[in-house]
């Protein structure tokens, strides 16, 4: 479990740097850039919720609630 936590930390760091780099190189509002940044945000959100907050051990309704929330957020933020 500890190894999984460490691996997730490394993945989160890489994803965060990727998002930062992507935002830096794209000075215009490219739709694909926005989509990629939001998809990476969703992955980071779910990674923390499932592994660090142990949502993976919760009832599936809790998992569905959080997945639906973060996907709805990303879609809404992307469509605006």
């Amino acid at each position: 479990m500890n190894r999984k936590n460490t691996l997730l930390w490394v993945v989160l760091m890489l994803l965060m740097l990727f998002n930062f780099w992507l935002a830096e190189i794209s000075q215009t509002t490219a739709r694909w850039t926005l989509s990629v940044i939001l998809i990476v945000t969703v992955i980071k959100f779910l990674g923390i919720a499932f592994q660090y907050m142990e949502l993976k051990d919760a009832h599936r309704r809790w998992k569905i609630i959080f997945i639906v929330f973060v996907l709805s957020f990303a879609v809404a933020a992307g469509l605006v």
């Binding site: 998002n19 935002a23 926005l34 940044i37 939001l38 959100f45 923390i48 919720a49 933020a77």
Partner: peptide, 17 residues
């Protein structure tokens, strides 16, 4: 971890997008 989750949403929207 909730503080993490909120920041994970705040940072890209406020600073990057």
């Amino acid at each position: 971890h909730m503080c993490d989750l909120i920041w994970i949403l705040l940072f890209p929207v406020l600073y990057l997008l």
